[in-house]
Design a protein around this nucleic acid. Structure first.
Lengths: 208, 208
DNA sequence: AGAAAAAGTTTCCAAAAGGAAACTTTTTCT
DNA sequence: AGAAAAAGTTTCCTTTTGGAAACTTTTTCT
């Protein structure tokens, strides 16, 4: 079991925790870079020396006249020792008070995979601490997975209907019926198969 | 220089990263993007449609033949809904803990109040990021509450059975049926009453 | 204030990126 | 297996980027 999973995809892939999904806000990269350079007390010349980029190039980037290539961005971030999250995420100082997002039954964002049929909930809200989703478990056999599912954070699972077997590293498999739940560290390999007649429906919540 | 190998399926964590200082760290962007696309089950054509980029461009990026501009990267991350900051960020080191706690239906720790009958789940585990509990909603009138319920963190609620009205500050009350859910900031005043014949049963999860 | 230096912008051009279409490889059908 | 379709790559060409140097603006000196 050393292969990277290709057939199953965790729904968190579809959602970015830090970025809006429906909200496509163009990041003012140049403006931000200028602020950073200023705050480091650097001139374009000094910045140029540190990054190996031409003074003119830096100027044009800061003034949004050109869109730097990935290569250039790497030189920038390496040279100035800045990290990207700081670059893209920070100005979002929105107070996390008063958000609310209702998701009606079966109205979440669908995301089918070979083994699960995911329905992402509360996708209108971004920057959430938790990511909730329902999953219809179609997998019927352990062998449908090539590798343990494993990711950062903690996970809570509740069986909404049907019956499943919950496999995880370090533990014996356990059968879970409607109403049963399990809380576990998601970096511990885990996977689920449905063992009831109908495909099982579960609620899953992840927090990192 | 230790290279961290991720066998995880989170796209944001798939980027390998060196702690190199002077040398420009060659992040295998193309390779990762290809893995991400594959794991999303997309062809270049579909990816092209989603991102608005030419098939040929995507191919060249994936094969490290060109270094995409920031503009292109934004189209990519928006179209495929992945997260730029995390593309660059060092993968979080997974701490290999392996906690697991199964709670059988109705076997959680009971905690009754005048308005709710709570059943705390996964109480064997401490220091959890999330606190899950089921609640039987006995309140039938919002007058039974003397004040908004209000606490730190974010909350997710799913109606397991019955029907409730969800009241919250800043919003109109909303009726929720079995299967409906709501995600909200818990410092926003909130309360719930049951409006179905039988007391409603809900699942609640809090994260701070 | 005016000259000199430093900082920043713009120009010009070589180099690289991005798109359309031709081409090749892989998969899906009989 | 062979044909057809789908997926992926490469070519060719236009647009854009990135760097050297010229140019302009701002700051720092007498």
């Amino acid at each position: 079991m050393t292969k990277v999973i290709q057939q199953d995809v965790y729904p968190s892939m579809m959602i970015s925790y830090d970025q809006g999904v429906d909200k496509i806000e163009p990041i003012k990269l140049g403006k931000r870079l200028k602020e950073i350079r200023k705050s480091l007390g650097l001139t374009l010349e000094e910045s140029s020396k540190k990054t190996g980029l031409a003074r003119s190039t830096l100027s044009k980037i800061e003034n949004e006249q050109i869109s730097p290539t990935f290569q250039v961005m790497q030189k920038l971030t390496n040279g100035l020792q800045i990290d990207i999250p700081q670059l893209f995420a920070p100005p979002k100082q929105i107070s996390a008070t008063g958000r609310r997002d209702v998701t009606r039954n079966k109205q979440g964002r669908a995301h089918p995979t070979s083994t699960y049929e995911h329905e992402l909930l509360a996708t209108q809200l971004t920057n959430k601490k938790m990511m909730p989703f329902k999953s219809l478990v179609r997998a019927r056999d352990f062998a449908e997975f090539s590798e343990w599912v494993r990711h950062d954070g903690e996970e809570f699972l509740l069986v909404l209907s049907g019956e499943i077997t919950f496999f995880s590293e370090f533990y014996e498999p356990v059968n879970l019926n409607e109403g049963d739940s399990v809380y576990y560290d998601a970096n511990m390999g885990h996977m689920i198969i449905s063992i009831s007649e109908a495909d099982a429906l579960i609620l899953w919540i992840t927090a990192s």
